[in-house]
């Protein structure tokens, strides 16, 4: 009697243990599709990419081991360095631009004024458009002859630009276009801003702080962890999300001005079937992103928040 009811002996009770095992088994069954799918579709492929980087492979014959030859070859090609430079410029401009846009929008639209919901819906609008449709829309907007952007510039009295056609402005155009897709960051920062205690702002206002000081010494430090996470996310996303715009709008652009790494990888792998080269480039790209994220983490000293996930 004692043996079967006392909790101390519960782990040694056979029926109790059987029920537990069965429960865990069923939990495992529920989790299985996700784990199997993630292994098959993400973990193994990511590892396989790393292996392919050291092989010669053309999708027909079996891959053969070639050591560091792929890396030596791509380092000697100018195209790789051009794409790397373009990618760095793109990420370096697009990620801060998106962060800044999200912050400004959030600071404006966190007030509970009447009609603020409609403004938020409008600001979120470009973020929900499908990538392909968004690229086509901007291809039309940037058109130097028929596009509305140059007409607006003419209307204001500014000179027309050649946008995607010119070598100098093509990359900037892509950055500008990505700068409107800030809806998710905006929502996050609005939530973060509304989570700040009002008392801080009231006390600072009583002490005679002006708006800039309130922002500089209260809002900004308290939002910093969120801003940092958002910056990481923007870097990660903009490093790889440039494929569809480049593919749809410029195909690498006038004189390789918009050849970014994801597009180059796609060309190498699926047009020229130099899969080893493509994998090596991808490996370098991810090593670069990883190093950048680690550098940011190290510079800013941790994640800035220690909540349980």
């Amino acid at each position: 009697m004692l043996r079967s009811t006392s909790l101390f002996f519960a782990p040694f009770n056979r029926s109790w243990r059987r029920i537990c095992t069965r429960y865990r088994l069923e939990l495992g069954l529920l989790l299985a599709p996700f784990l199997v799918g993630a292994t098959l579709l993400i973990i193994l492929p990511a590892l396989y990419t790393a292996v392919l980087a050291f092989t010669q492979y053309d999708a027909l014959a079996a891959p053969t081991w070639s050591g560091l030859a792929n890396f030596r070859t791509i380092f000697q090609r100018d195209l790789f360095w051009i794409a790397l430079r373009n990618s760095l410029i793109y990420v370096g401009l697009a990620a801060p631009l998106q962060l800044l846009g999200a912050l400004l929008l959030a600071l404006l639209l966190h007030h509970p004024h009447r009609g603020v919901r409609q403004y938020r819906v409008a600001a979120y609008l470009p973020s929900v458009i499908p990538e392909v449709a968004y690229a086509l829309i901007w291809l039309w907007i940037f058109n130097p002859l028929y596009g509305p952007l140059n007409k607006v510039l003419a209307w204001v009295g500014l000179p027309a630009l050649n946008w995607l056609v010119s070598e100098d402005t093509a990359l900037i155009s892509l950055v500008l276009m990505s700068g409107l897709r800030v809806g998710e960051g905006m929502l996050l920062l609005i939530a973060a801003r509304q989570g700040l205690p009002t008392a801080y702002f009231q006390v600072a206002a009583l002490d005679g702080g002006n708006r800039w000081q309130l922002f500089r010494y209260i809002t900004l430090p308290l939002l910093a962890p969120w801003l940092f996470l958002l910056l990481l996310r923007d870097i990660l996303l903009s490093a790889q999300s440039s494929f569809v715009p480049v593919y749809m709008m410029t195909s690498g652009g006038p004189n390789y001005a918009t050849t970014l790494l994801p597009y180059l990888v796609y060309e190498e792998a699926f047009s020229h079937f130099r899969i080893g080269h493509a994998a090596a480039m991808m490996l370098i790209m991810f090593a670069g992103i990883g190093a950048l994220l680690w550098l940011l983490y190290w510079l800013l000293g941790g994640w800035g928040y220690a909540d349980e996930i």
Binding site: L31, A38, L40, L41, I42, I43, L44, P45, A46, Y48, T49, L52, A59, L236, A239, Q240, F243, P262, V265, Y266, A269, F270, I275, A278, A279, M282, M285, F286, I289, I309
Partner: peptide
């Protein structure tokens, strides 16, 4: 905690990394 960390790690994995091997698979 391990599962959540794993899921967040998967979230961080770039989608471009899996184009090629998925094609092969």
């Amino acid at each position: 905690r391990w599962l959540v960390m794993l899921t967040i790690g998967l979230l961080m994995t770039p989608s471009t990394a899996v184009w090629l091997p998925r094609y092969v698979l």
